[in-house]
């Protein structure tokens, strides 16, 4: 598999470590009233779609960027690759 790194161009998937669902970016707010439930869902509940899936990949043997890779789990086609940092910022994460 090849992952088109936004900074480095196409790199072999062997250089990466996959973590899973990009939903792990959306860490809940600990101040929320039901924080325990939210953390439980954040940590343990995952979608396993047949089709488009947003995944976190870490370029461990490369520049150590975390990436959000949008991949079709049926065809392995990679539809989009973004820096996870950009995705996190766009989703409102900051400090």
């Amino acid at each position: 598999m090849l992952i088109d790194h936004p900074l480095l161009g196409p790199r072999d998937a062997q250089e990466f470590v996959v973590l899973g669902d990009a939903g792990l970016i959306d860490r809940p707010d600990r101040q929320a009233g039901d924080a325990a439930r939210r953390f439980h869902e954040y940590l343990h509940l995952r979608n396993n779609p047949a089709g488009e899936h947003r995944e976190l990949w870490f370029h461990e043997q490369g520049d150590r960027s975390w990436l959000v890779v949008t991949r079709d789990t049926l065809t392995h086609e990679i539809l989009r690759v973004e820096l996870a940092r950009d995705v996190a910022v766009a989703r409102g994460r900051d400090r």
């Binding site: 792990l24 970016i25 860490r27 870490f58 940092r85 900051d94 400090r95």
Partner: peptide, 15 residues
């Protein structure tokens, strides 16, 4: 180190 990079880039990119 991998987890700390995850926290830095994905959880608190503003730090």
């Amino acid at each position: 180190f991998r987890n700390m990079e995850f926290a830095r880039q994905c959880l608190w990119p503003g730090l």
